[in-house]
Simulated assay, not measured.
Amino acid sequence: MRARRSWSKVTDDAPTHAELLRLVSVAGRVADHSSLQPWRLIELRGTDRERLGRAISKAEGDKGSSTKPLRAPLLIAIVASYRKSDKVPRWEQEAVASGVAHALSLLLDEAGWGVIWRTGHYTRSKAVAKAHGLKKDEELLGWLYVGGKPPRSGAGRRKAVDARKLLTRMPKPAKD
Results as ranks from 00 to 15, higher is better:
108 L>T: 11
108 L>M: 04
108 L>F: 01
108 L>C: 07
108 L>E: 00
108 L>A: 09
108 L>D: 01
109 D>M: 02
109 D>A: 11
109 D>R: 02
109 D>S: 03
110 E>V: 11
110 E>N: 02
110 E>T: 13
110 E>S: 08
110 E>F: 01
110 E>C: 06
110 E>A: 13
111 A>G: 08
111 A>P: 11
112 G>C: 03
112 G>H: 06
112 G>N: 09
112 G>Y: 06
112 G>S: 12
112 G>M: 04
113 W>D: 01
113 W>M: 04
113 W>F: 12
113 W>L: 12
113 W>I: 13
114 G>K: 01
114 G>S: 09
114 G>I: 02
114 G>A: 01
114 G>N: 03
114 G>M: 07
114 G>H: 08
114 G>W: 05
116 I>H: 03
117 W>V: 04
117 W>F: 06
118 R>L: 10
118 R>Q: 06
118 R>K: 14
119 T>I: 10
119 T>L: 10
119 T>K: 01
119 T>C: 09
120 G>S: 08
120 G>K: 02
120 G>A: 00
120 G>Q: 01
121 H>K: 08
121 H>E: 11
121 H>W: 07
122 Y>H: 10
122 Y>Q: 10
122 Y>K: 00
122 Y>T: 06
123 T>F: 05
123 T>V: 13
123 T>L: 06
124 R>G: 03
124 R>E: 12
125 S>K: 06
126 K>H: 13
128 V>I: 07
128 V>R: 05
128 V>N: 05
128 V>A: 02
128 V>Y: 02
128 V>K: 02
128 V>G: 00
129 A>I: 03
129 A>F: 06
129 A>L: 10
129 A>T: 11
130 K>R: 14
130 K>D: 13
130 K>T: 14
130 K>Q: 14
130 K>E: 15
130 K>Y: 07
131 A>H: 00
131 A>G: 09
131 A>I: 02
131 A>F: 11
132 H>N: 14
132 H>E: 03
133 G>W: 09
133 G>L: 05
133 G>R: 08
133 G>S: 10
134 L>M: 12
134 L>K: 08
135 K>T: 15
135 K>E: 15
136 K>T: 15
136 K>A: 13
136 K>H: 09
136 K>P: 14
137 D>M: 11
137 D>W: 15
137 D>S: 15
138 E>Q: 07
138 E>F: 08
138 E>W: 03
139 E>S: 15
139 E>H: 06
140 L>N: 11
141 L>C: 13
141 L>F: 14
141 L>N: 09
141 L>S: 13
141 L>G: 13
141 L>R: 07
142 G>A: 12
142 G>V: 08
142 G>R: 08
142 G>F: 08
142 G>W: 02
142 G>H: 04
143 W>N: 06
143 W>C: 09
143 W>F: 04
144 L>G: 14
144 L>R: 04
145 Y>Q: 07
145 Y>W: 13
145 Y>P: 00
145 Y>M: 11
145 Y>S: 11
145 Y>R: 08
146 V>N: 05
146 V>C: 12
146 V>A: 13
146 V>R: 07
147 G>V: 12
147 G>Q: 02
147 G>H: 01
148 G>D: 14
148 G>V: 12
